[in-house]
Each structure stands twice: as structure tokens, then as C-alpha cells.
Amino acid sequence: MTDPVLSVENLSLRYRVPGGSLQVLRDVSLSVQPGEVLGIAGESGCGKSTLAAAMIDLTGANAERTAGTIRLSGRDILSLGQADRRRMRGRDVAMVFQDPMTAFSPVLTMGSQLVDFQCNLDGVSRREKSDRARAMLARVGLSDPDLAMTRFPHELSGGMRQRAAIAAALLMRPAVLIADEPTTALDVTMEAQIIHLLRELQADYGCAIVIVTHHLGVIAELCDRVAVMYAGQVVEEAPVDALYHDPRHPYTRALLACDPARIEEHTGRLPAIGGRLPDLTAPPPGCAFAPRCPLASDRCRTLPPPRVTIGPGRAALCHEVAP
């Protein structure tokens, strides 16, 4: 195997909150090969956005890394100085955020923002940057890029804005594109179009993509590999086909059972996983999923589950999974 373009090694991170701290990532390890598309799935609140933000070193001011490293193109980004970290953004790694409505400054035109966003591109004039931006807007499917450049963000539709956000992220041909729920704010038709676009762009530019979503259909469409997160941990990691056909971790199974796309008959009711996420200020000593798990036994409640390697590129964090 080649060297991963992005790797997260044993990352633990917490948020300082009034009256304690939230253990939002616990011993997370993941790696992304060049050109690979990795999906991160899991229900809301399990730490997906935090992990995505950590990959580009953009966690909030109250976030604190307690252990682990993040390597980008082989460099340990957290050991770099502020200026060097800043220099990697946009070129080595770029991000598309969830909400296209608020992702751009409301008082600057799209054009001037897209030019600004190329600040890590050296030796290129503003004019050239503007040309590059225009070309990229055309590439992501905006019908009138010249007009779009002069518009303010709110003058574009949600779908167009998300396309523009993707264009922005690709402007400097990053090695890794991180997309945090890029389609959640959009309607279904738009979602399909954006996913289609991402697949096309990935084929064209060959960048690796990390896509966070709670929509398993999106993952099936787009990803090579999936990491399923629960309560700040990666509980199962597998190639996408293997995960769909043979989910091993009880949480993955529950999640797949809930996915509306997989429900054949329209009963009009979506199944949901019973129970709630554990309190992350005091994670349980055993398996975090035990209170909601149909297979939970006594050792699940007291002993942390082992990471069981199931096959090539497959692992699960569970007492009951056999290798």
C-alpha cells in the first residue's frame, strides 16, 4: 500500500464545557489513501463534524487534543507552527461545509471571495485567480460563471452556492477534500446532483475525499470505504460493499435498519434506534453502545471492547464480533 495522504492516529479530543469536558473523540484512527473516497457515518452528535474539523485543524477554541496525531501528506500538522498549518490549507486539504447558506461572507461578492480563497497559491496574480475561479465555477456546473462572480452569496440558490463551495475547495487542487454533510441542507434532487458532481470531480482530479454524512445512500453512491462512528469512536471500518452486505457491528446493523433508503415497503414510519447517545462528559467504562445494544452482555458493560480485525481493511470495536 502507498502512504496515506491523510491519517489520524489515536486521536482523542475533548471540548471544555461549563462543568466539565466532553470526550468527543476517543482514540480515533483512520487513514485515507490518495484518491480514495472515505465515508464517515453515524447519527447526529457522535463527533463526525469534530473529526472532520480536526482533519483541517479548525476545531473550536474550546477544543483540546489530549492524545494522537494527524498527518497530512506525511507531516504531523499539529506539531507545525501556525503559519505552516495555514499554508497547508486549500492546497493539501480543503473543506466543504454543511450549510451553503452561511458558508460565504454575506457582504463580499462570490468572485472576490473565490479569489481570496486562493491565498495559498503563490506567484499567481489576482486576475489569474479570478480566471481560475470563473473556470472552476463553470466546471461545477454554474451556467453563467461571469454573472455568478459578481453576485453576493444570497443571490444564488442553495444548490448553486454548494456548487460554488465545492468549486472553492477544488481551486487549489487539494490532495484531500473534506466535505461535512455537503448535501444535508439541500433537497433530494439537488442532493443527487451534488453527489453526481462530486463523483465526476473525483474522477477528474483524483483527489481523496472524506465525506461526512448520516445518509447511507450517499455513502453507497460515492465511497470506497466507510467508517462508522458512535459516541466519539470509530466502531466499524469496512469497504463499502462489505459493510452493506455484511455489517458486523451491532450499531452498524441498527443504523442500516434505520436508513430510509433501505426500507422497501413504505410503512410511513421510520425505524429508529431506541435509546440515546451516552453522556460524553462521562463515557461508560465498557462499550458505549451497550445500553442500546441487543447483544450486550455483562462484559460489554464493564470492559472496553477490543478492536477486532475481521479481514483486509475491516475492523470492528465489539466484544461479540468474531474475526
Partner: peptide
């Protein structure tokens, strides 16, 4: 604290520029 500030940072704009151009303008 707004999202567009995070975007500007995600593209590596220097903090002073983030504050003066993206923050102050609003």
C-alpha cells in the same frame, strides 16, 4: 463565530485578514 469566518480560515487566510476583511466588514 459565524460560519463564513470558519470558511475563510479553512482556506488559510491570515488571521488579520480574516478579522479585518471578513469580520469587520460585517
Amino acid at each position: 463565530g459565524e460560519n463564513h469566518i470558519r470558511t475563510a480560515r479553512a482556506f488559510g487566510l491570515p488571521e488579520s485578514r480574516v478579522v479585518l476583511r471578513y469580520g469587520l466588514r460585517v
